[in-house]
Design a protein around this nucleic acid. Structure first.
Lengths: 142, 142
DNA sequence: ACTTGATCTAGACCTTCCTCTAGATCGTAG
DNA sequence: CTACGATCTAGAGGAAGGTCTAGATCAAGT
């Protein structure tokens, strides 16, 4: 069912799927799209054998994706890493730009939350005083 | 160019687009999809005339969408509001569920940010000591 | 009247990001 | 040897959320 005869730490695609939360399909898709740093190792039979480093990279990818980095940008990042030492400044710029976007997202979500909280408050108050309130709900926007 | 002969507060679709940040196309799309609470007023010539209340509803929609509420759920909410008084408890449940998701999103983004911060720190440190660092970048995952 | 810009409708089209299918192969357990 | 599940490749399919086009109409300025 799993690893034998290969470097003890290597993982099958299914195991990587479990560890990263990505689907097996998505893992193959990411690879095709050039989102991985290096080519994935194969067993003599042609199955993928992921190294721990691949998994760590994928875990970073998952975080970047979760924070809405587009695949295209993730690909760009992977290319920079693949190119090797010498472009760290550019990698840094890329990450830093993304970080700003994440901060903006957080701020935006906090604002959304306060709008929702306000709406929730309106409904709670209404329910508290009971439907007996009679003429109610002239509230713009329900 | 704008309102005359209609209730002073009514707005053209272009004006609403400006005020909400939605495109004119998106506004028509939202309407078709049943995301608005009521039918939008029309001029004798057939142009849409939005009431201030429509705009307020749209501004709420924008916030809900920004926080990733699916259109289907927004539509459900619009239906409840359209149905009128009596279903406030359900509206509340819907909003409350969404609020939890927003909180989860914020927490997830904060975790992403800390991963990014760590990565940024790695690159900054590298750049600080100069490329002269020589053998570097055995870092799993670039 | 003429021109220009905003709107109108219906519906085709697009992008992003996967997901799923088909049909074949690998590998391990019985 | 036989099964059976996991994986393989290539490519089709799909959901979400708009965006854009075409061709016509409206409304205002000159």
């Amino acid at each position: 069912m799993a690893a034998t005869g290969v470097p003890a730490e290597s993982l099958s695609i299914g195991e990587v799927a479990e560890r990263t939360g990505l689907s097996v399909h998505a893992l193959r898709f990411y690879e095709r799209e050039g989102l991985l740093v290096g080519p994935v190792d194969r067993t003599p039979g042609g199955r993928r054998r992921y190294a721990p480093m691949d998994v760590e990279w994928l875990l970073v990818c998952v975080k970047l994706r979760e924070s809405a980095m587009p695949l295209a940008e993730l690909k760009r990042f992977a290319e920079l890493v693949r190119a090797g030492r010498g472009n760290e400044a550019e990698r840094l710029r890329l990450l830093d730009a993304h970080r700003s976007r994440v901060d903006a997202q957080i701020r935006a979500l906090e604002e959304c939350r306060s709008v929702i909280n306000w709406k929730v408050g309106v409904y709670e108050e209404h329910l508290d005083r009971g439907e007996a309130g009679g003429l109610w709900d002239p509230t713009p926007g329900g």
